[in-house]
């Protein structure tokens, strides 16, 4: 990176560190933080959308819909933590391959499950065996996003379902009295008002989502945990220009600080949003704001 990095063994501490922290692998490490932010940026809206659909289905008057919505919420929330992640990624992967298999290779004779192996025809492999490395990584990343979204979608569905029921009945009745249809009431009255009830739950969920991102490591993605372990491990002078002892502790300390910063920052921001949303609402918070304002 810098001109003085030609021979690291002769540098004094500060310059050595500057060179060390700007090696190619370290940029992969920094890029993995972007991956974490990326998965947050993609998962949060998708999970919210899933949650919205789930909540709408759960409160539908049409019984099959409400059964689907409610069981989606119940099943995902009932199964304990990371087992779900480990399970879902393999299950989704096999489901995709199986679907492609039945579509692309209808003549395939052999069974898919042979003893302990799961075998589909080569054309149905996902990603294709010949695909470049990037596609493999993107596919793994995509599976992770879907898994995260499905799981957090169920939690969001639960929060939104509760929030929709928390909107005062009188508000909806007023809307009906004005002659609004079911759909209009939902769009114009229920949805705008529910957010203030949903926000505490959603912000909690967001914090949990941030803290769930290291589990990407378990899904086989080269994320922050992977790189911290790689880079922190003891390096001898034979294999690296920057030999050092076991520094994994310091790398994980950095990760710890990164996550603390993330949760601290989002708490501040979410508090702001809450203040904005409570404005003029018929809740205790809104009332307190009204009283605090000078007349």
């Amino acid at each position: 990176m810098f001109a003085f990095c030609q021979d690291p063994s002769e540098l004094e501490t500060l310059r050595w560190l500057a060179c060390y922290l700007t090696t190619g692998v370290h940029f992969s490490f920094y890029f993995s933080f972007i991956k974490v932010l990326g998965i947050l940026a993609v998962t949060a809206p998708v999970a919210l959308a899933f949650g919205f659909l789930g909540a709408m289905a759960a409160r539908s008057r049409f019984i099959p819909f409400s059964a689907i919505g409610k069981s989606y919420i119940a099943i995902v929330r009932g199964v304990p933590d990371i087992a779900f992640f480990l399970f879902f990624v393999i299950a989704l992967d096999q489901a995709f391959e199986w679907l492609r298999h039945s579509y692309l290779c209808p003549d395939w004779e052999e069974p898919i499950r042979q003893g302990t192996d799961f075998i589909v025809c080569p054309a149905a492999k996902l990603p294709l065996g010949s695909a470049p490395e990037v596609v493999h990584e993107a596919y793994a990343f995509g599976l992770a996003v879907i898994t995260f979204s499905l799981v957090f979608g169920a939690f969001a569905a639960n929060v939104l379902f509760g929030a929709m029921r928390a909107v005062p009945r009188a508000q909806l009745e007023t809307a009906e009295a004005y002659g609004m249809s079911q759909r209009q009431t939902f769009r114009r009255v229920l949805v705008p008002q529910m957010w203030v009830y949903a926000l505490p739950g959603l912000s909690n969920l967001w914090q949990v989502l941030i803290k769930a991102t290291p589990l990407l490591f378990l899904l086989g993605i080269e994320d922050v945990v992977y790189w911290a372990r790689e880079l922190g491990g003891t390096k001898t002078a034979r294999f690296s220009d920057y030999p050092h002892g076991d520094w994994r502790m310091w790398y994980f300390l950095a990760l710890l600080l990164f996550y603390l910063l993330m949760t601290w920052g989002s708490e501040k921001i979410l508090n702001r949003i809450m203040l904005r949303l409570t404005k003029g609402q018929a809740t205790a918070g809104g009332e307190a704001q009204r009283k605090a304002r000078p007349a």
Binding site: A212, P214, V225, A228, G232, L253, L256, T263
Partner: peptide
């Protein structure tokens, strides 16, 4: 804040390498 604000997963890793040191 320290223990609620960071993932347990990272805490485990950090503690393990800390104890190793």
């Amino acid at each position: 804040f320290l223990f609620r604000g960071s993932p347990l997963f990272i805490q485990f890793f950090f503690a393990y390498f800390f104890f190793l040191n």
